[in-house]
């Protein structure tokens, strides 16, 4: 990197030290600015190259990318994202619905209910669990949970089958529900760890204000803890949702890789964009690869929308966020 030489006051002692200073300063400043710009370039490149590789496949598509419920880019060259996007969103949403209430409960347990010493240990354990690789949850899901879910699924189907969600004629362990449970177990520690962190950050004086008004423990939580922690819990949930939607291996092992749209979550149906990429990548032709890349682009856009939405929700009530005090 070229060092700009400042000759104007070179010569005087002052000038020498100034130029020596700037000789060190500029490269360092350039390097750090450059690194930041590099990140922007990468982000742009991700968009550009995914599009560049996806377009030829999309052009070769003999069907409709948005409406066809079939994925045969290698053979008939007909492929549509519908079923995959549906599976991605539904499985991740189900996982979120199952995981977030429990995660918030766990976070509250650690931050406000458990004895002090136990809370410290538990917080550490939750942090560790949040770091367990997803492939481990996938392995557990396919070896243990898939056979295990057969019974409960039949039970649900038998007695609650009148609810469309639990309806269907054939019930199996490999189902949308099982995949969602694995995703829920996987994101639970992540959401719990972040929520616990925000609950611990609630200023002591706000909790004491509630206590001094004669609030019970639950009322303290309702009045002081949850409102303060809400933006953090929302961000944590969205991070969890993003993880669940992007999760590949765990669901690739479980989904039966079908291409339909059905809300019957107990039946052997289901797939997701990421799982389809993992399953289909090995045998893909060039068109097939392009089609998978196109589906990845869709996944990317969905996660972007989710994250932006979350940020808007968090920002909306900023006036009352407590950051002001």
């Amino acid at each position: 990197m070229a060092t700009p030489v400042r000759t104007r006051d070179g010569g005087s002692a002052l000038g020498r030290s100034a130029s020596r200073r700037s000789r060190g300063e500029s490269p360092f400043r350039y390097a750090s600015t450059g690194a930041g710009i590099f990140l922007l370039v990468i982000m742009a490149a991700i968009g550009v190259f995914l599009v560049v590789e996806a377009v030829p496949a999309l052009q070769a598509n003999k069907g409709s990318f948005f409406t066809d419920l079939i994925w045969e880019p290698n053979g008939s060259q007909i492929f549509g994202i519908g079923a995959l996007a549906f599976g991605t969103v539904v499985s991740a949403t189900l996982a979120l619905i199952m995981a977030v209430p429990v995660a918030v409960g766990v976070a509250l347990f650690i931050s406000h209910y458990a004895p002090r010493r136990m809370a410290g240990v538990l917080g550490y354990v939750i942090d560790l669990l949040a770091a367990v690789p997803s492939v481990v949850y996938g392995l557990w899901g396919v070896i243990f949970l898939v056979p295990f879910m057969q019974g409960p699924s039949e039970f649900l189907n038998e007695y609650l089958g009148f609810i469309p969600l639990f309806g269907g004629d054939l019930v199996a362990g490999r189902s949308m529900l099982t995949a969602s449970i694995v995703l829920a177990v996987m994101i639970l520690p992540i959401v719990a760890a972040i929520s616990r962190e925000v609950f611990l950050q609630v200023p002591r004086m706000h909790e004491e204000a509630a206590l001094a008004l004669g609030a019970t423990r639950w009322e303290v939580i309702k009045v002081a803890v949850l409102p303060f922690g809400r933006p953090g819990v929302i961000s944590a949930s969205m991070l969890g949702l993003g993880r669940a939607m992007g999760e590949t291996i765990a669901v690739a092992l479980i989904f039966p890789a079908t291409f339909g749209i059905s809300f019957e979550i107990l039946t052997p149906q289901g797939n997701s964009i990421a799982a389809n990429i993992a399953n289909g990548f090995g045998e893909a032709t060039p068109i097939g690869r392009g089609a998978l890349i196109a589906s990845g682009l869709v996944l990317f856009i969905i996660t972007l929308l989710v994250n932006t939405g979350a940020r808007m929700i968090v920002a909306r009530r900023k006036e009352f966020s407590g950051a002001a005090s």
């Binding site: 204000a209 509630a210 001094a212 409102p227 407590g322």
Partner: peptide, 28 residues
């Protein structure tokens, strides 16, 4: 809880609930 309902407290640093309006604070 019942004791604190009868004996109110004001703290050294003002601590209105940050997520509540003025009205909601008084009504809390």
């Amino acid at each position: 809880v019942a004791v604190r309902r009868m004996i109110g407290m004001v703290f050294q640093r003002p601590n209105p609930f940050p997520t509540m309006s003025i009205y909601e604070n008084v009504a809390a």
